[in-house]
Design a protein around this nucleic acid. Structure first.
Lengths: 285, 285
DNA sequence: CAAGATGTTTGATTTTGTGCGAAATCTTGT
DNA sequence: ACAAGATTTCGCACAAAATCAAACATCTTG
């Protein structure tokens, strides 16, 4: 059973005394360590944590139970995974790499994308923001003969090129990670157009409005929201009550929110007040 | 007993492992690995995955069953293929016509691209035309810190995004087959710039000049040739003595021709007369 | 010593590995 | 092209290993 000799536990790790303070990490310190690791890697393993923190696996398990009770993580066999609710009131500074983001909450995003795709039917001019959910939307969208699609995401443009879409891009500098085109000239090229419908992704939503991490992409998001008849925001439930670097607009700045679960009451109330229609993409499987 | 003396394969994949004891990857981590591999390559093999992840083939099979249940992949004998729902986000599979064009005279184009890449060293602003040879050039190019690359090819932009390049695109309508951006506005955005060096592909060359079959892309080619200190034409030997739809410029319109074999005498004489330097990329292998 | 937290034992549960016959795929011979 | 045999892969059933959690022991601190 005991695969590592269980005998000495922390003794080996934190020898005798240390002049200042505790050598055994307090519960709170362990919790912080676990959460920060979750935030950066997405998963943690009981064994790794036990060794890193110099405590027994049982203690780690108890920690994980506590944290799960608070909804900060989801326990799985062998460890735990991130719920996305970790950085609750904290502000997100750096966005994870695209691939990892795409995998996170994949099913929810797929459902949201499907709901959004049906909304786009019949529209002649469609604006697509940068992001993982909008990329999934692009994949699911029915391309109709004469529809023109405007996007500042090179990734989405490349995706749509393999299908029969007529795609327009703005010019400017391409951001490396997100493959989005931003900057003043890009905004200028799109701001005189008028779209039938615009789909905008966000990285956070509170009753105070919608947020995004990327400084560079926000101006274009605002253009999409300003210059379209129907303004749709795509936001999976993990982003509720989260703020990011930049405030894009208040909740009144768009018409429809598509999400995968009912928002918390405070946001729900604010949305109702702002006259935003909320579409919840149901889990049908 | 040591639970896994067998798998050191995963050592390469999971560097976070500590020297003293290793931990089996969580099911979820394996799933992510499988999906990301599927997204980048399109197929996975049970044996390879088992080795990479340091688990048995049976475990991989069980993972594949789980993932198939969720519709994320399709299982086949020996492994699994991607369902198309999670295709790679950068362009990996070029559509057949383009891919076929890329394969034609592939070695010659590679050599030309290599020669061109060495020419670009040290340049701060580089213009890259649309085309298969220029795509190969993009792949081979040494990216230097502050170099800015301008291209109207979305394909090349996507390629360069995976490397540390600073890329600028013009805005406008994207042609579906070539993924190039053309049109009046696109030309306008680039025609006031000045490039250190420009690489232009052609589809034909005679003593009368250079040609291309794409009506839409020619204007941009002319901009590249007009607005750069060093004008380089990439043209493999199969294109000598061939004309195409549109005449781009006479032979005097550029400075250097990079090709893979000596041009026929008539063209050679015209090139000499036009004071064009001819670089022949030798077959060194 | 009491209280609270942590470690250990132990047995149940879950996951993973292995053996082996069945099925699928590849090879070879006709 | 087809069939028989060799090879690989599959997947079930069971064994082994790892993980989990409850109960209990131990340690720390005041």
């Amino acid at each position: 059973m005991a695969r590592r000799q269980s005998g000495q536990g922390m003794a080996a790790r934190f020898p005798e005394r240390r002049p200042s303070g505790d050598f055994r990490p307090l519960a709170q310190q362990r919790h912080i360590h676990i959460l920060s690791r979750l935030a950066s890697v997405g998963t943690v393993q009981v064994g790794v944590l036990a060794r890193d923190l110099g405590v027994s696996e049982m203690t780690i398990r108890r920690d994980l139970v506590d944290l799960e009770k608070g909804g900060r993580l989801t326990r799985i066999h062998g460890g735990a995974v991130d719920t996305g609710k970790n950085r609750r009131t904290v502000i997100d500074r750096n966005e994870p790499v695209f691939e990892a983001r795409l995998q996170r909450h994949y099913e929810a995003k797929q459902r949201i994308a499907a709901a959004a795709a049906s909304l786009s039917a019949g529209c002649k001019t469609i604006a697509l923001d940068v992001g993982t959910t909008t990329l999934l939307l692009a994949r699911q969208m029915q391309i109709e003969g004469q529809a023109k699609i405007f996007t500042n995401s090179v990734r989405i443009a490349a995706e749509l090129a393999t299908r029969a879409a007529e795609v327009y891009l703005p010019g400017g500098r391409m951001r490396r990670d997100e493959m989005s085109i931003g900057g003043r000239t890009a905004v200028e090229q799109f701001q005189d157009l008028w779209f039938d419908i615009a789909f905008v992704g966000v990285s956070g939503m509170t009753s105070g409005g919608i947020f995004d991490y990327s400084f560079e992409d926000v101006d274009m998001k605002r253009v999409y929201l300003r210059r379209s008849s129907m303004k749709v925001v795509l936001c999976d439930a993990s982003k509720f009550e989260r703020m990011s670097l930049v405030h894009i607009s208040p909740l009144g700045g768009f018409d429809i929110l598509i999400t995968d679960a009912a928002p918390p009451t405070q946001i729900a109330r604010a949305l109702a007040e702002a006259n935003v229609r909320v579409d919840i993409a149901a889990d049908t499987d």
